[in-house]
């Protein structure tokens, strides 16, 4: 299956069974990631971006569970494996985690242990996944692993790498910690890197440095990246393909230029309009999306966006759920303005 996607997510559902009711955090998400491609996932808080990425690595926090769908990942050897079916504590997912798919998680402090230096932690990861560095077999010595980390630190733009190696994560500034985390994620040469809001907590000039770094690494090593953010500017500059999510579903997906210049879904259009830009008129009312994001327990029936949609078709949009279908231009949309296909009830 050469030429096919590296990762193919189909109909993914993740449900959190809580005392008050169940939350459908991810409710039928589908998208593909081609080898070496940067796919941006964008959407507002709570729409299911982080849960989607955690599901890929079987890291969904209990009481959450993958309720349906498949995530076909092409492994280094060429075999496809359905990540959705793997045992969260099993051998296969542990082989894949870190080595083939690496995650830069949203909570930067949580990802390094405070009691070990960042260097020790990355050295451990490299030794654990020795096969990524010694394809012909054999262990990586501590000294060799340390040398690899020094190179990685230099690669991600950490000055004085030998000293920084022996720091604890809490001793590093936000920008340096972010770089150390990227070094950690790259330490096992993943083929797919998942970056969940990697620059949201850092300043704009540091963000520019980190984004340039990720772009450069992607070019040099051909790593595919799933890039999650709620920042449309960051998406426009990073992604070649964009997935727009709302309430656990994909509203629209397509090439980045089409999403920004010819958005087809009313939610994508509204989102782009409501953003104050670096050009255009100032101190005027911004177009807004009416209403508020519904509480996860009160998912609207029909199209999840219908209570806030200005173009909703009476009688149709509140009754049936539109599926994601191609609408031309390489784009797909879940919207009855563009096709008639509804989810089976």
């Amino acid at each position: 299956m050469t030429g096919g996607p590296l990762l193919s997510v189909r109909g993914l559902k993740v449900v959190f069974g809580l005392d008050e009711g169940s939350v459908r955090a991810v409710d039928g998400v589908s998208f593909d990631v081609m080898p070496g491609q940067v796919v941006g996932i964008v959407g507002e808080s709570g729409c299911g971006k982080s849960v989607t990425t955690k599901a890929m690595l079987q890291l969904v926090d209990p009481p959450g569970r993958i309720a349906a769908g498949e995530m076909l990942f092409r492994r280094a050897g060429g075999d496809a494996v359905d990540l959705a079916r793997l045992d969260p504590r099993g051998r296969e997912i542990r082989e894949i985690r870190g080595a083939e798919i690496a995650l830069i998680p949203q909570e930067p402090m949580a990802s390094f242990s405070p009691v070990h230096t960042v260097g020790e932690q990355i050295v451990e990861a490299i030794r654990l996944h020795a096969r990524q560095w010694r394809p012909e077999g054999g262990a990586v010595s501590r000294a060799d692993a340390r040398a690899i980390v020094v190179d990685l630190f230099r690669d991600v733009g950490i000055s004085m790498p030998e000293q920084r190696l022996d720091s604890y994560s809490w001793q590093l500034s936000g920008g340096l910690r972010q770089r150390a985390m990227i070094a950690m994620a790259l330490s096992c040469k993943p083929r797919l890197l998942i970056a969940d809001e990697p620059t949201t907590a850092i300043d704009v000039t540091t963000q520019a440095q980190v984004l340039a770094l990720l772009r450069d690494l992607q070019k040099r090593h051909g790593t595919a990246i799933v890039f999650i953010t709620h920042d449309l500017g960051v998406i426009a500059q990073m992604a070649s393909h964009v997935v727009v999510m709302y309430l656990g579903r994909v509203m629209e997906e397509g090439p980045v230029d089409a999403i920004f210049h010819a958005p087809r879904h009313p939610y994508t259009r509204a989102l782009l309009r409501s953003m104050p830009g670096m050009r255009g008129e100032t101190r005027v009312a911004l177009p807004t999306i009416s209403g508020t994001l519904p509480h996860p327990f009160n998912r609207p029936a029909g199209c999840p966006f219908h209570p806030r949609c200005e173009e909703a078709i009476a009688g149709r949009c509140q009754a049936r759920v539109p599926v994601l279908r191609p609408v031309g231009g390489g784009q797909s949309a879940s919207c009855f303005l563009h096709h008639d296909e509804a989810e089976a009830t």
Partner: peptide, 16 residues
């Protein structure tokens, strides 16, 4: 350094 929400605008050089 501000990323412009338009993929047709090239990312600026990192000058800082």
């Amino acid at each position: 350094a501000v990323p412009v929400a338009d993929p047709r605008v090239p990312a600026g050089d990192v000058l800082l």
